Simulated assay, not measured.
Amino acid sequence: MTDGGHGPVIETAEVFGAHRAGDLVSLTLIAPEIAEHARPGQFVAARVGDESSAEVLRRALFIAAATTGGAHAGTVTVVIAPRRAGSRWLAGRTAGDRLDLVGPLGTPFPLPSGPSPAVLVAHGYGGGPLSWLAQTLVAQGSPVEVVLGADTASELYGEQPAKRIAERVTVLTTDGSAGRTGPTTDAVSDAIVRLGAEVVYASGPAAVLRRVGELAQEHAIRAQVAVEAPMACGIGVCLSCLLPARVGDGGFRLVRACVEGPVLEAGRVRWGEFA
């Protein structure tokens, strides 16, 4: 579902610019229709390859920013970790190249009805959608604290934008190459207490999201998480992104991460089976 009930569109986007930061690549794409309706937590599904090498399955890319005004009006930004053939192809796009996109897709992060202290937790390129969410929350009057983590410094994303708007930014890396040494979730409890947080938002691998959910439960606050799953079609048809979620009667059912998610209440996901 998309915010405001607006359905996704198919749009041929032109690459406005490409930027490499460590092991990650961000692409700014001219896609005015998608930009107009996108919200933090949503994603686009990008066709991979050219006419002679196109792959059947699209790649789901979280939207890290969308602009509808100013110098970069009508653009969306996506962040890519070029680990496999498809993502490496996408990361190799340069200014003037074109990409076939479908979007915006998925359910966005729910925003509070008024100012609400929030802790944002991101691991690796999960910092993309969280950076945009932080800007949105601050603009609505919510104090924000950000925890950014990665396995190593070259996989961090969003530190500088976060420092410009957040009350505090804590950086952790598993190997100690940036910030404190330790897992991303080591700083979450302290941040919740320090800020008096009423909600936690998170984006990253399942293990991080699961732990964030546990910590939020310990502090009796909500946790909204953007799950990473193989969302090939993006519209709930291919069923490649099924994950088990709890329902009100104590049972569970399989939900589609691309439609009912990717943003879900952390407590709903049966993480052991999902992982």
Rank of each mutant, 00 (worst) to 15 (best):
G204T: 10
S189K: 10
A197N: 08
A187P: 01
G179M: 08
P205H: 12
T185Y: 09
A207N: 14
E198P: 00
T170W: 01
D186M: 11
T173E: 12
D175P: 04
A202W: 07
G196C: 10
I192V: 14
A178E: 12
A178R: 13
G196H: 07
E198H: 15
A207Q: 15
G179Y: 09
R211H: 13
V171C: 07
T173D: 10
L209P: 00
R210V: 01
L195A: 03
R194M: 12
V199Y: 06
A206C: 09
A187M: 06
A178N: 02
A202P: 01
V171S: 05
V212H: 08
S177T: 14
Y201V: 08
G196A: 06
A191D: 02
V199L: 13
R211K: 14
A187D: 03
D190L: 11
S177E: 00
A206Y: 08
G176T: 09
V171E: 04
G204Y: 01
V188N: 08
R194T: 13
R210T: 03
D190N: 13
G204D: 10
R210Q: 12
G179R: 05
R194E: 15
D190K: 05
T173W: 04
A178I: 05
R194Q: 13
L209R: 04
T174M: 04
V212C: 15
S189E: 15
A206Q: 11
T173V: 11
A197C: 11
T173F: 03
A187I: 00
L172P: 03
L195F: 06
D186C: 08
G176M: 07
G196Q: 10
R211P: 04
T181Y: 02
V188P: 06
L209E: 07
D175L: 07
E198T: 14
R211D: 15
A187C: 03
G182Q: 06
V208E: 05
T174E: 15
V169G: 05
A206I: 05
G182P: 02
A197P: 06
G179F: 07
L209I: 05
I192R: 07
V208Q: 04
V171K: 06
A197T: 08
A207Y: 12
G176F: 07
T184R: 02
G196M: 05
R180F: 13
T185N: 02
S189R: 14
D190G: 09
R211L: 12
A178W: 02
T170F: 00
A202Y: 02
G196I: 09
Y201Q: 10
A187L: 03
V188L: 15
V171N: 06
T174H: 11
R211M: 11
E198I: 02
T184G: 02
T170L: 07
R210C: 09
A191I: 02
G179T: 04
T170A: 09
L195W: 00
T174L: 13
T184W: 01
R210L: 02
S189T: 15
V212N: 11
E198K: 15
A191R: 00
R180D: 11
T174S: 12
D175E: 10
D190Y: 05
V193P: 01
R211Y: 05
T184M: 05
A206E: 14
R180S: 13
E198C: 11
R180H: 15
S203G: 01
